[in-house]
Design a protein around this nucleic acid. Sequence first.
DNA 1: AAATAATACTACGATAAAGTACTAATTATC
DNA 2: GATAATTAGTACTTTATCGTAGTATTATTT
Lengths: 138, 138
Amino acid sequence: MHFSKTSEYAIRVLSYLSVHNESLHSVNTLHKELDFPYKYLTKLMTGLTKKGLVISNRGREGGFSLARDSKDIYLNDILNAVEDSGVNEDERCILGFDKCDSTNPCMLHDKWIKPKTLIDDMLLNTTLAELARSNKKI
Amino acid sequence: MHFSKTSEYAIRVLSYLSVHNESLHSVNTLHKELDFPYKYLTKLMTGLTKKGLVISNRGREGGFSLARDSKDIYLNDILNAVEDSGVNEDERCILGFDKCDSTNPCMLHDKWIKPKTLIDDMLLNTTLAELARSNKKI
DNA sequence: AAATAATACTACGATAAAGTACTAATTATC
DNA sequence: GATAATTAGTACTTTATCGTAGTATTATTT
């Protein structure tokens, strides 16, 4: 049970931005600091820009910064931005049981699918600010 | 946040075996009942056999059955068998923070990495028996 | 012994995720 | 205005996951 590589990159790069929010950071800087593949990071950052999580400043001396306060960015926002693996909107059964719904839930239904429980609770309630604060050494 | 297709197949086929444990079940039967790709299911079943979760009986009238009581098969066993995404033994940080360990945990460390909490708790403590019991309509 | 029904093995194909290469567009600095 | 440093866009390559095909092996039934 783990995040995809892309999700991990996104979470960590945004964490970095949140604890270094005094200035802009270019892909080059982020690449050197975080050691993610340069080109892949470029793609990721433009993606995060389109999704509205970061703001890009083009041209020389340009770079990226968080689009809003890290207290207002939730883990779930990040996962939704980079892939469709955030909190499940359609409540499809995580085990794939066709017959699993709220009236006839499988065992994991309540724990995994419905918001405000376990993972979803964490995804929905954990902010980037908390995440970043918890590991200063990035 | 979801299981891989293969994990889902494994969980569901083992659930099926646990609630129909009076006899052997061939890949053909399992394929018809569960509608998973026949050849892929074959490969999966021989894999589960090698990992010791099921017992295979070759030859005509052969098939598969659970290797042990479903009360002794945990979700984590299944995930470990089909991919390396069960509870993380080496405690690698789920966010990828190099510096995250028990003395300097990232925010998710306790919730995700250390056993007996949230997901890991569920994976380690949810048995196939409970899983299967919760959805009889498979 | 032959036929049949099953698992086991090996190799290949299709698709998605991860990563690379190249070029265009933008903007601050000189 | 030229240059340099940056983001943006497009296409390609690589790797892993998912799925298929064909054949060999095993064991039961007749």
